Amino acid sequence: MDALLDNSDLILGALGTTLYITVVSAVGALVVGVLTTVARISPVRILRTAAALYVQYFLNVPLLALLLLAVFALPDAGLLMPLRTTVIVVLVVYEGAYVAEAVRSGVNTVPPGQLEAARALGLRFSQVVRKVLVPQALRAVVQPLGNVLIALLMNTALAATVGVVELTSAANRVNNVAAQPITIYVAVGLMYMVLALGIGLLAGRLEKKVAITR
């Protein structure tokens, strides 16, 4: 316990980094996921194909491989970014595929009659998506999106492998000096657990609040 107290500044700073990466990546992934879903249901075939390929690719490639590729290969191609920014970009495009799958399942819950009524009123595709499909789809998948957010939180730990000092990386550094793995990793694990439970509880409450009664 003394090791944690003596390094509390490092641990708390790393916790802040983990939360920052999680929040920024979550917002970006939500935007990417929604846009991808819109592309998958659009009347333009090339958009549907591109969106489907994007989702399938990122659903079937390990996140660690993408992180290593971005950190070590992209600089050789002339794309230089700070490590934390690189991690956030990778998480956005990776988790965006999972968000897209969740939102697409929400789109499938919208009654076809509502879409037909919207078209009968003369609404364009963009208006149908913006005013009918996306709002109802998001309300229907609050809990699945919460699960994606929890997975995103856990995936931030992989940032330690590329040199970002987040919570797991800080735990490794403290343990290298103090050699108290049980105390340090149990404490850090509890922090992740509390954050995950908090996300789950918030998602559950939000789901009840915005639930659609059909």
Rank of each mutant, 00 (worst) to 15 (best):
Gly78Cys: 09
Leu190Ser: 06
Gly189Lys: 07
Tyr20Phe: 13
Thr109Tyr: 05
Leu35Ile: 03
Leu64Gly: 07
Val99Trp: 02
Thr183Ile: 11
Val148Met: 02
Thr213Cys: 08
Val165Cys: 09
Pro181Val: 01
Ser169Asn: 06
Val210Pro: 03
Leu158Met: 08
Thr86His: 10
Leu5Gly: 08
Ala117His: 08
Ile199Tyr: 10
Gly113Asp: 11
Ile184Lys: 10
Ile46Thr: 14
Val142Lys: 14
Ala73Glu: 10
Gln114Ser: 08
Gly78Met: 11
Leu74Tyr: 12
Leu19Asn: 12
Lys131Thr: 03
Tyr98Glu: 03
Val128Asp: 08
Thr86Ala: 05
Lys131Glu: 05
Ala100Pro: 04
Leu138Ser: 04
Pro43Met: 13
Val27Trp: 14
Pro135Phe: 11
Asn155Lys: 06
Ala77Tyr: 13
Leu69Val: 11
Pro75His: 15
Leu5Val: 12
Val34Thr: 15
Leu68Trp: 05
Pro62Cys: 14
Val38Glu: 07
Pro144Thr: 01
Lys131Asn: 03
Leu123Cys: 05
Ile21Ser: 05
Asp9Asn: 15
Gln127Glu: 15
Arg84Trp: 01
Ala137Met: 07
Leu67Thr: 06
Leu153Val: 14
Asp9Tyr: 12
Tyr20His: 08
Arg130Ile: 01
Ala118Arg: 06
Leu67Cys: 10
Ile182Phe: 15
Arg130Trp: 11
Ala171Thr: 02
Tyr192Gln: 03
Asn60His: 15
Val24Tyr: 07
Pro112Val: 00
Leu59Pro: 00
Val93Phe: 09
Ile199Asp: 04
Gly28Pro: 07
Leu74Met: 13
Arg214Met: 02
Ala211Pro: 06
Ala160Phe: 15
Gln136His: 04
Leu15Asp: 14
Asn172His: 08
Leu12Thr: 00
Arg45Trp: 07
Leu83Ala: 06
Ala14Tyr: 08
Val128Ala: 10
Val90Gly: 13
Gly146Trp: 06
Ala100Met: 03
Gly113Leu: 01
Ser169Glu: 11
Leu202Thr: 10
Ser8Glu: 02
Leu30Ser: 11
Met154Pro: 01
Ala151Ile: 00
Val31Ala: 11
Leu4Tyr: 09
Ala77Leu: 15
Ala203Phe: 05
Gly198Pro: 03
Arg205Pro: 00
Tyr192Asp: 04
Lys131Ala: 10
Leu197Thr: 10
Ile46Val: 13
Leu201Thr: 09
Val103Gly: 09
Leu69Thr: 02
Asp6His: 14
Ile199Lys: 12
Leu167Ala: 06
Arg124Gly: 12
Leu123Tyr: 14
Thr85Leu: 13
Leu197Cys: 02
Ala118Ser: 07
Asp76Glu: 14
Thr17Val: 15
Leu74Asp: 04
Leu152Cys: 06
Arg84Cys: 00
Leu67Gly: 05
Ile182Pro: 03
Ala171Ile: 05
Val71Trp: 12
Lys208Leu: 13
Val34Lys: 10
Leu4Ala: 09
Arg130Ser: 07
Leu64His: 08
Lys209Pro: 01
Val24Glu: 03
Asp6Gln: 15
Ile182Met: 15
Ile41Met: 08
Thr36Glu: 06
Gln180Trp: 06
Ala178Glu: 09
Val129Ser: 13
Glu166Tyr: 12
Tyr57His: 03
Val210Phe: 12
Leu133Asp: 00
Arg205Trp: 11
Val27Met: 10
Lys131Cys: 05
Tyr185Asn: 07
Gly146Asn: 09
Tyr94Leu: 00
Leu15Ile: 09
